[in-house]
Nucleic acid binder design. Structure first.
Lengths: 300, 300
DNA sequence: ACAATTATCTGACTAAAGTCAGCTATCATG
DNA sequence: CATGATAGCTGACTTTAGTCAGATAATTGT
């Protein structure tokens, strides 16, 4: 149901349209600068989407929204240029992993520099007003990305969920003082995070997974929150709060009355969120080696 | 010579790149919605660039950055669709003027509505945070359009000029200790700010007024600078200086040899600008109740 | 073991965008 | 009135992007 609020001010609409024009011009200029490296835009975008660390082809395809035939041809082109190598994914040999070669890394770095240089030019032309502009850009980006992020239940073994979990583990390994090895942790089995025992929720931004949370149950009235993670690119939008609220709602629907969670002291934002949203710190209720804090929340 | 200032913070660059991603998606979505009218994007853009009032072909071509052959073909297509008519420019019969037909006007309106609807959707999803977002978008747009801000003479009674003046009065009311009531002030009559007595200049960023200055004359060799104002989103770019320089140039062209102005002590940035640009503080030359400083500058 | 699904590749297309050389008509200038 | 510049038109291209219908191989569910 649109048009519930007051009718938008035409002057405000004009302001937004001016913004759109300003920004499409900027985007066009960036595209044009990308063209300067003697490669069509599609190929340049594909290379950048593969990134330094390499990625599986289907992820790139989903991000760029390309037809599989076109994607295949672009990769063939990049391969012929000696910029990427393709190898079957050992985990699923239908998939292929694209990795940049040394030359590919150089090209990616060159494209990054082009982006950076535009950003620098913008910043340096501003002087003392730069912080205000950056804050404004953050606000706009957050607003534009906000309504595109939706929360959906997924199977914890589905590729999107596994991608989130892999990124989550990698981040824990970076952030925990002692590193992180999932095999030493109380890793929940997938069936405990599937209905009717539990649930696994993904935050999807335009189809891309940008966050997750697990609800691990055992059929009884007490369940645990696990694996709360937000992609770096999606932080600062209150997404963790939305995911937690969705997990609580799902738990209620599954007849769960008490939620628990354990967490590591390195995860300060998460701990702050739990405290802000009605979780009470309680004594350790398990022997999770990576946990220093335990929380509980009643769902009534 | 770039790289003079301090090296930009990589985190700031990352923020800009996040902004770019958010915004190019938005632009892509708008393009996709334009495609829904059964016309390739190039033709749709050309039609919208022609606009309601029609335009000469070379102006459209310059705006869209198209090859003359391509432009010609796009126009031929629009003509065949019955959306535009082409006629030689009476002033220079090499040029051609494109004007929308009635059907063309309807199509332009339809494209406008598509843009408007996206803007409305964004606004309505925001509620009370809308003003902050709009201000942020203005700031970003102004920064990106920085080099496209142009100064044009306007009638002081035109809507864009009145909008600037209203914003100026509102700001004075906020900033002056005693508030501001325009009826108590020495408000210049509009004819004194029109050629040949004076002038009224607007700073236009992509069509939106973002600043103004008035030159109030009485036909003699002495004129006053009035109503210097820059929209908050456009500050910090040296626009006030550009507007003042343009006003001085206009004054010279009108045969004025001495400029004066009065101002309030609350307008510190303006006073600093006057001091920096060759204005000399002089004793009060009028009884403006809101003024504490009077300046004069000779134009030789 | 079997069918269904999934990821990718290939060939054969089309549409859109863009380039380029040469043409004509008009205009500005000496 | 010749000269050169300018604006636009046309035909003959190329490149880029994108679509679609199979083919193939690997995986999943039963």
């Amino acid at each position: 149901m649109p048009n519930t609020g007051p009718a938008p001010d035409p002057a405000d609409i004009a302001r937004i349209r001016r913004f759109n024009r300003a920004v499409t011009r900027e985007a066009g200029a960036l595209d044009a600068s990308f063209l300067g490296r003697g490669r069509p835009l599609g190929a340049a975008r594909a290379l950048c989407a593969i990134g330094r660390d390499g990625r599986d082809v289907s992820a790139v395809r989903a991000e760029l929204g390309l037809d599989s035939g076109l994607m295949s041809r672009l990769l063939r082109g990049l391969e012929a240029e000696g910029l990427v190598t393709l190898a079957p994914d050992p985990a699923d040999r239908r998939r292929r992993l694209a990795r940049p070669t040394a030359a590919g890394l150089r090209e990616i770095a060159a494209y990054d520099r082009l982006s950076d240089r535009r950003a620098e030019a913008l910043l340096s032309g501003l002087g003392r007003t730069a912080p205000a502009l950056l804050a404004a850009m953050d606000l706009v980006a957050t607003a534009l990305l906000h309504d595109r992020t939706e929360i959906a239940e997924a199977d914890p073994a589905a590729p999107a969920a596994r991608a989130c979990l892999a990124a989550y583990y990698a981040e824990l390994a970076r952030r925990f003082e002692a590193g992180f090895d999932v095999t030493l942790s109380r890793d929940p089995a997938a069936p405990d995070m599937r209905p009717p025992r539990g649930s696994f929720l993904l935050a999807l931004s335009d189809g891309q997974p940008v966050g997750c949370v697990g609800l691990k149950g055992d059929g009884g009235p007490v369940a645990e929150i696990k694996r709360l993670w937000i992609a770096p690119s999606a932080r600062g939008q209150g997404l963790a709060r939305r995911l937690m609220a969705a997990a609580e709602a799902r738990a209620r629907a599954l007849g769960i009355t008490t939620l628990r969670l354990d967490t590591n002291r390195a995860l300060a934002e998460a701990i702050a969120l739990y405290r802000r949203t009605g979780w009470a710190e309680v004594p350790a209720f398990n022997d999770e080696p990576y946990a220093q804090h335990w929380f509980e929340k009643g769902l009534d």
